[in-house]
Write a protein that binds this DNA or RNA. Structure first.
Length: 289
DNA sequence: ACCGTCGCCTGATAGC
DNA sequence: TGCTATCAGGCGACGG
């Protein structure tokens, strides 16, 4: 599942292989892929055809590509994308057979490799959004700065976290508080900080918040270092099927396997209608909830 | 304003 | 064998 590190790998691929190219045609194969483009599929196609992508940016798990008009002047719109659970953005030769779950195809005026949006479960999507310059499109403004962004403010995050009246894992998954953390890396960061996800945020000490943030940064950074070198950027597989995940994860998906720190079997709990993994000894449950 | 729950979606897998 | 149930989980809408 693509979280921040995987999306950053995709961004780098787009910046290298798509930025600077002009769209010749757009084919939408499944309307759900552009459902967030409220003006409809035809408008989506019109808004992109003939425009040039100028760069690829990311905040949290969102990507956006600013555009320029045919005469080179900057456009006030950008292509915004989210990979959801299973989305891929692939840069491939036109001769490559269509993928089963191909949702949209972009061809370019240079006749080179196509950009394809492939998404089995269709939680992801594309839209053209208002945007000026390289700044974040207003529709994405609610997504918090992510911890790999140089402007991330650790003190502000710590203060905001401790002001919340919720459980710490919920807070980590809240994209308006910190961007880019999903279920997998939330569990990994909590394990590193030796905190159970049900701990109330308001009662965390400064030291605990600090350890948590360090855990988040480390796990995202390490995943990026591995993912960024594991994939051919021409074919960015963000489904984790290449297996680099499982060698790297301490607790996620590791139920009944020994905790790498203390050897206690990892437990799996249901939380927010999804799975949470933790070490019963390193991460004791809070007494009350 | 803030917090928690629900529905969306499809393929793999387990169990009968 | 073939069916059904369960699971994977990010996000925005919505209700309290």
């Amino acid at each position: 599942m693509p979280e921040l590190p995987e999306v950053e790998v995709v961004r780098r691929g787009l910046d290298q292989w798509v930025a600077g190219r002009t769209v010749a045609a757009v084919e939408v194969r499944h309307p759900r892929a552009v459902r967030r483009h409220l003006e409809g599929t035809e408008h989506f196609v019109q808004a992109l055809t003939g425009r040039t992508f100028t760069a690829a940016h990311r905040r949290g798990k969102y990507l956006w590509l600013p555009m320029a008009e045919a005469d080179g002047t900057p456009s006030d719109r950008a292509l915004v994308g989210h990979l959801g659970m299973s989305g891929q953005l692939l840069v491939e030769k036109p001769s490559q057979p269509d993928e089963t779950h191909l949702r949209a195809r972009f061809t370019f005026t240079d006749g080179g490799r196509e950009l394809r949006f492939v998404d089995q479960r269709t939680f992801g999507g594309l839209a053209v959004e208002e945007s000026t310059g390289d700044g974040i499109p207003p529709r994405l403004a609610h997504i918090a700065i992510d911890p790999l962004d140089p402007s991330f403010d650790a003190d502000a995050f710590s203060a905001a976290l401790r002001r919340r009246h919720t459980e710490v894992k919920r807070a980590l998954l809240d994209q308006t508080l910190i961007g880019g953390v999903g279920n997998i890396y939330a569990d990994e960061a909590l394990w590193r900080a030796q905190l159970h996800g049900a701990r109330p945020t308001a009662k965390l000490t400064r030291a605990q918040v600090s350890a948590l943030l360090e855990g988040v940064r480390d796990v995202l950074g390490e995943a990026l270092a591995q993912g960024g070198t594991s994939f051919d950027s021409l074919y960015v597989d963000v489904n984790g099927q290449s297996g680099y995940f499982s060698r790297f994860l301490a607790v996620y998906g590791q139920a009944d396997r020994p905790c790498p720190r203390c050897g206690t079997p990892i437990r799996r709990e249901s939380f927010m209608n999804r799975s949470s993994y933790s070490c019963p000894r390193c991460q004791p449950r809070p007494r009350t909830r």
